[in-house]
């Protein structure tokens, strides 16, 4: 299973997305973003690749869209 990282503009928005995801049953993890990805706040939310579409749609509805989705 491959993972992807959702990157948000700020720590606050990352934690806002975390708050929303905690209300769901998806598996996710707040992780550091590798420094070569020079974007976002340094924090990201790791999710499973096959759930990306559903998670993104959910977060968009909640007003917490990531600025970037990175494949690991």
């Amino acid at each position: 299973m491959k993972d992807v990282i959702l990157i948000f503009s700020s720590v606050h928005h990352t934690l806002g997305a975390e708050e929303q995801l905690m209300k769901t049953t998806w598996h996710f993890l707040v992780v550091p973003v590798p420094p070569h990805i020079n974007e976002g706040c340094g924090l990201g939310i790791q999710i499973e690749e096959n759930e990306v579409a559903a998670v993104l749609q959910y977060l968009e509805e909640k007003g917490f869209s990531p600025v970037k989705v990175v494949n690991l």
Binding site: P35, G42, L43
Partner: peptide
């Protein structure tokens, strides 16, 4: 700010910037 550390200029970010 703990964020965008590679950048030498202030990030235009709310709230952390």
């Amino acid at each position: 700010t703990g964020t965008h550390s590679a950048s030498l200029s202030q990030p235009e970010l709310w709230p952390e910037g």
